[in-house]
Design a protein around this nucleic acid. Structure first.
Lengths: 251, 251
DNA sequence: TTCTTTTGTGTCAAATTAACACAATAAGAT
DNA sequence: ATCTTATTGTGTTAATTTGACACAAAAGAA
C-alpha cells in the first residue's frame, strides 16, 4: 500500500481534495458513511484526490463509486472548505508511523495545505455496500445526528451538507436515490421529516406531493398488518429529472 | 511588474484561484465588474490567488478590496469550478510575450491547471471605484445581460452567480450593498425585478417588504417631480444581519 | 363479527397571494 | 389659485395555499 500510494501521488493535483458526504437513509434516520483509520482509530469522511487530467466532478464520482460500488445519478457540490488551518496535522508523523509509512514523499503530501470541495450524494442503504479501503479499518454508516468527532473540519462539512439538503428539499423533490424503487407515501413523508427535523401533516403532505406530479401510483402494498394497505409509489423519472435540471427551480 | 509577480509566485498556493463576480446596480441594470487585459484585449473576471497562509475567504476579501477599494460586509462563496479543461491556455505564450513577460516561472505558473472558487459580492456603483491592475488595460462595469465573451469559463461563472443571487432574493433580503444608504420603495422593487427578471406588483411588494421588518421608514423624498413624493427607507442593519446570519433561512 | 390501526380523502378556517382600485399629493401648466 | 398629471400609499376582494382536524374505508387479528 505504502508503495502504491507513493507511486500514485504524482498523478494527483497537489493541495486539492474532494470530501464526500454520502447520506443514506434507514429506519427513520439519516446516516453518513464514515471511515475509521487503522492507525489512529479516528473517523473521517470518505475523500480523495483529483487526478491531474480529471474533472473535479468526475473525481467525486470516482471516489463515490470506490466507496459504495454504486453509480450515482445525482451528486451535488455544496461548498469548498479553504481555511488555512482546517487540517490539524500535528500528529501526522505518529499517524504515518503507526501505518508503517515512512516515505518522505507521502509525509510531504499529507503535510501540504489542502482545499477540499464537498460533494453530497444520497443512496439507498439497502444497495450501498461500504468498502473499507486499505488505510481504513472500518467503513460504516453512522447516524447523522450523533456522529463521533471527525478529523479535520469534517464535522463542519457534514453540517454544511445537512443544511444543503434541507434547503433542497424545500423546492425540489428528494428521495430518488434514498428510498427503494417502490415506497409508500408514509415512507416518503418520514424521509422528509427526518431531513427537515420536524413533523409534517400526513394529509397535507400527501396532497402536496401528488399535486407536484413526480409520483406514480402503483399497486397496493399488503404488508400483513391489521390495517388499510397503503399504495406504493415510484418516482416519475422524467418529472424528477426535469425538476433536478431546472436547478434551483425558482422564478 | 513581471519581476514583482515572479517574486510573488512563491507566496501563492499553486493551482488554486478565486474569481470574484462583483455585482453592481445602476439605472435598472445589474452590472458586472470586468477587467480587460492589456495584451489580449480579452475580458475576464477579477480574480487572484490564495496566499499560502491565508484562508480562502480572506483571499476573496483581499482581492475584492484591491479591485474596488471597498470593504465588503458580505461575500458569498457560490461554486467551485474544477473542470480539467476550463482554461484555454493555447495562446498563453503569445499572450505573455505581448505582455513582455518571458519568465519561465511565470509561464509555468499560468500553464498549471487551476481550480477556481467563485465568490459573489455586491456593491453600490456610486461607491465602487474600479482600479485596473498593472496587467489590465481597463476595469469596467458591464451590463450583466450582455457581457462580452470572457476568458476561460468566466461566462459560466457569471451565470452561476446570477442564478445564486436569484435564489437568495427569494428568501433573504438583498440590497444592502447594492443600493445607496437611503432609497425609495420603488428603487428597491426595481432592483428585485432586475434580479428576478420579472415584474412584481408594486402594491404587494411594498406590503411584503414592510411586513418583513428589515426596512426603516425615513423622511419623504421630494425629487422635484410633479407627483406624490415617496418615502425614503434604509435597512434596519440588525434585522438585515440577522437574516443573513440565519444563512439559508429555512427550517 | 368486532376491534384496532392506518390510510385516503374531506372540510373549513386562517393566512397568503394576486390583481386591481382609489384617494392623496407634489409640482408644473393654466 | 386652480387644474392637470404622474406617482404614491393603502384598500379591497377573489383566488389559492396552508394548517389542523375529521371521518369513513380497509386489512388483518381477536
Amino acid at each position: 500500500m505504502q508503495q502504491s500510494f507513493e507511486s500514485l501521488i504524482d498523478n494527483y493535483l497537489p493541495g486539492q481534495s474532494v470530501d464526500c458526504v454520502i447520506i443514506g437513509y434507514a429506519s427513520g434516520e439519516l446516516k453518513i458513511l464514515l471511515l475509521q483509520w487503522k492507525a489512529t482509530k479516528r473517523w473521517s469522511l470518505p475523500g480523495g484526490f483529483i487526478l491531474k487530467d480529471e474533472d473535479m466532478d468526475k473525481a467525486a464520482l470516482r471516489i463515490l463509486k470506490e466507496r459504495t460500488t454504486l453509480e450515482f445519478p445525482f451528486i451535488h457540490q455544496f461548498y469548498t472548505f479553504g481555511n488555512y488551518r482546517r487540517r490539524d496535522i500535528s500528529n501526522l508523523n505518529k499517524e504515518l508511523a503507526a501505518m508503517n509509512i515512512n516515505s518522505p514523499k507521502v509525509n510531504e503530501w499529507f503535510r501540504q495545505r489542502f482545499i477540499s470541495t464537498g460533494y453530497l450524494a444520497m443512496v439507498n442503504l439497502d444497495k450501498a455496500k461500504p468498502q473499507p479501503d486499505e488505510l481504513s479499518i472500518k467503513c460504516d454508516w453512522m447516524p447523522a445526528d450523533k456522529l463521533p468527532p471527525l478529523i479535520y473540519d469534517h464535522n463542519d462539512i457534514v453540517a454544511k451538507a445537512l443544511e444543503y439538503i434541507k434547503m433542497r428539499v424545500h423546492f425540489l423533490p428528494v428521495g430518488m436515490t434514498l428510498l427503494p424503487e417502490k415506497f409508500t407515501m408514509n415512507e416518503l413523508r418520514l424521509l422528509y421529516e427526518t431531513i427537515l427535523q420536524r413533523s409534517l401533516d400526513r394529509a397535507n403532505f400527501q396532497r402536496k406531493m401528488l399535486k407536484l406530479g413526480v409520483l406514480i401510483r402503483l399497486e397496493k402494498h399488503f404488508a400483513g398488518n391489521a390495517h388499510k394497505a397503503p399504495y406504493l409509489y415510484k418516482f416519475d423519472k422524467k418529472m424528477y429529472n426535469a425538476f433536478q435540471k431546472e436547478g434551483i427551480g425558482f422564478v
